[in-house]
Amino acid sequence: MSVQDGGIEGAYNLAAAKPGGDNGDAPMPEYRNDKVVVRYDPKICIHAGECVRGLPSVFNVSKKPWIDVSGASADVIAEQVKRCPSGALTYELLKKAE
């Protein structure tokens, strides 16, 4: 996937992200705004808690939904998602329409 065909400025772990793909019958939950999309694959999460400890303003299991992409900048969210040890969290930085 490239900027030209997907409108994606930056992405992390897209190979593991298979929305509507090989994740059973349900697509991966997506949490988005106009700058970033965060996906969560509960089937591979090992519940290490890196996300919750590292960026509680975005990842908070006491809230519904538990991921709030308005809780930090897209770049800060991306850096935290990269720390997910299982790859259960993935992100896409969205390119602004010109």
Results as ranks from 00 to 15, higher is better:
56 P>A: 07
90 T>Y: 05
68 D>T: 00
20 G>R: 04
62 S>A: 09
33 N>F: 12
49 G>L: 01
30 E>Q: 14
97 A>P: 10
23 N>S: 04
39 R>E: 14
47 H>M: 05
66 W>T: 07
3 V>R: 07
78 A>T: 15
37 V>T: 14
26 A>H: 02
89 L>P: 13
43 K>D: 11
91 Y>H: 11
59 F>K: 02
14 L>A: 06
34 D>C: 02
71 G>S: 07
47 H>Q: 08
90 T>L: 10
65 P>W: 05
21 G>N: 00
93 L>K: 15
41 D>T: 10
41 D>L: 14
14 L>M: 05
64 K>D: 14
67 I>F: 03
55 L>F: 12
61 V>L: 14
20 G>I: 00
93 L>C: 03
12 Y>N: 01
45 C>R: 04
44 I>P: 11
98 E>D: 09
14 L>D: 07
16 A>G: 14
74 A>E: 01
45 C>P: 08
9 E>G: 09
88 A>H: 06
3 V>L: 13
8 I>Q: 09
33 N>T: 09
19 P>G: 01
26 A>E: 08
82 K>L: 13
55 L>S: 13
32 R>Y: 09
81 V>A: 06
11 A>W: 02
91 Y>Q: 14
66 W>R: 06
64 K>W: 14
90 T>N: 10
1 M>W: 08
25 D>I: 08
26 A>Q: 00
90 T>G: 13
54 G>K: 01
20 G>Y: 04
75 D>Q: 12
64 K>H: 09
64 K>Q: 13
66 W>Q: 02
14 L>K: 03
61 V>H: 11
97 A>E: 05
80 Q>M: 12
33 N>A: 10
84 C>I: 11
46 I>C: 08
45 C>E: 04
31 Y>M: 04
56 P>M: 09
96 K>E: 14
31 Y>E: 11
60 N>G: 03
60 N>H: 11
97 A>Q: 06
23 N>G: 11
50 E>T: 05
59 F>N: 04
96 K>L: 10
47 H>N: 12
40 Y>N: 02
29 P>V: 02
54 G>H: 02
42 P>H: 04
11 A>L: 13
46 I>N: 00
71 G>Q: 09
49 G>K: 03
88 A>T: 02
18 K>H: 00
22 D>K: 00
54 G>M: 04
53 R>Y: 04
65 P>D: 00
2 S>C: 04
52 V>H: 03
82 K>N: 07
27 P>A: 07
93 L>F: 06
79 E>N: 15
18 K>L: 07
17 A>R: 14
5 D>S: 15
8 I>F: 03
55 L>I: 12
24 G>R: 01
3 V>D: 03
98 E>N: 09
